[in-house]
Write a protein that binds this DNA or RNA. Sequence first.
RNA 1: GCGCCAGUAGCUCAGUCCGGAUAGAGCAUCGGAUUUCUAAUCCGACGGCCGGGUGUUCGAAUCACCCCUGGCGCGCCA
Length: 572
Amino acid sequence: MGSLIERLDRRIAEALAAVTGIPDAAAAVKPTEDERFGDFQANGVMSLAKRLKRNPRELAREVLARLDLGDICSRVETAGPGFINLTVSSRFLSAELGALARDARLGLDAAAVRETIVVDFSCPNVAKEMHIGHIRSTIIGDAICRLLEARGHDVRRINHIGDWGTQFGMLIEYLRRTDPEAVRGGKTLAIGDLEEFYRAAKARFDADPEFAEAARREVVKLQAGDPESVAVWRVICDVSRRKFEENYALLDVRLEEMGESFYNGFLPEIAADLAARGIARESDGALCVFLEGFGAPFMVRKRDGGYLYATTDLAALKYRVEAMGARRIIYVTDARQKEHFRQLFAAARLAGYAPEDVRLEHAAFGSILGADGAPLKTRAGRNVLLKDVIAEAVARARRVVAEKNPELPAAEQDAIARIIGVGALKYFDLRQNPSSDYVFDWDRMLALDGDTAPYLQYAYARVQSIFRKGAVREEEYAGVDPLIDARVEARLGLWLLRFGETAAAAARDCRPNIVAGYLYELAARFTAFYGECPVLKAEEPARAGRLLLCRLTARVLAAGLRLLGIEVSERM
RNA sequence: GCGCCAGUAGCUCAGUCCGGAUAGAGCAUCGGAUUUCUAAUCCGACGGCCGGGUGUUCGAAUCACCCCUGGCGCGCCA
């Protein structure tokens, strides 16, 4: 059936086509920004009039004469230079809300075509602790996956971890020397702190020439598949993986690991294929793809014969298209890699690894800055660890819960603090357009007022409180078409109807912030309704209708937050 | 040098792809609301040459061109 906007758009487009004879005339229906202009407006008449060199107001009147929207609207009128303003009737709104309440999907329809979509996100490096630099990719990537999954797609959440490369020689050699038992048996491992381990290995590498030489020999052995080297490499990867999983569990993020090493065997054939077909050629001893419009070539093999991340990315892309059947590949990485991905996509198209109808997207995100405007670091100038950030968010939330609701049992306070703390952390990131940088601010993130997760979660808890307080049974409101009397009810109801189209737009554009903005507005409209309209004490039939609005609000809030990977609490 | 991104209220940001009505929100500030379903709330006020300029258009934060400022990226790291 489509969203209300789509339906209005279609009807008006038909009238436009009938009047002008232009079949693809766009009605351009949008919600109004000012309520005096009704609920929706169609802007299409004006641009069409321009094209036809006609008077837009006159054209609008003709379209209006052709238009019968009596089943949806209580008022349809032309205004200004050629707008058509639409006001939805309360009878229609009531029926739509009744139908929405009976829809398990809350208007969020599955996409017309189910596609396999690869989302490449998180991607930490083995032997390094996850830090603040991984939070955006992990949180945004997860939200994008949830959005696409909600649209019914077959989403592959790929963790393209950095588990291969020259630094492994150093790490393997270091582990051999400092924990030979772990290397042999692998049962216990002395790597407590991955950051520390990496730093120590690096320090030794820089200071000890004999060690450095041994490390270089290790690289060769590892790449040649030496069993013992591979075994030690596995041990290091396993330790890292366990560390990553701790973070993912805290964040409730699920990933499928396919690291760089997975593509190792494909690299020579990629280079050979590109060279054989003349797509890449030698330059200064290196093998490069020269792409039009780029300053630098796309290098796939170094002078020394080694491969680069460009080669791995190309191999991964090819694999995803050919072996996994991806119709869309989304890379959730730092905006600084924009040029790299433009080159990667161009090279993949040129090589035929990605046919034109496979969409390649770089969902780029900006940096997290400290209060000083520089990228966020600890006071000592180190990376802020992800687990520390999560712990701090939960601890801060815990203090607030204890202050606001001291009578709750400690265990429940803990559980609520986790939901609020992690939710606040995620929401603070997701509410902004991914592409922009943002300033990290604990106080704003966990503030109880304004556009924050706690505010949304609180709105949810308040709705649930109504049902608890009134010991409301489902039969009391299920199946009714709510009476829409008050303006605040209509405003809430109209907004509830837009959940599906909003989530679909966010999924299409890889923009979780669209959902965040929607939910904030929903919570605001709900609290306005809540403040003005008594629910439990209302007379029937208003009471049942308001209960239905409350139930719908709670469901949409929970479902919407769920799309962002944020949980709700029945009480807070 | 070449390229990419950003510049919107005191602060933090939406809106820019696809041009519409008087440019929105949050915070901060100020004023108001509570015998009432969680005040972790709500209502109101204040606050803008949308970095500058030129152009296209009935109409520009949005499109084009030029300039200024800041950030970032640019062959053998990822």
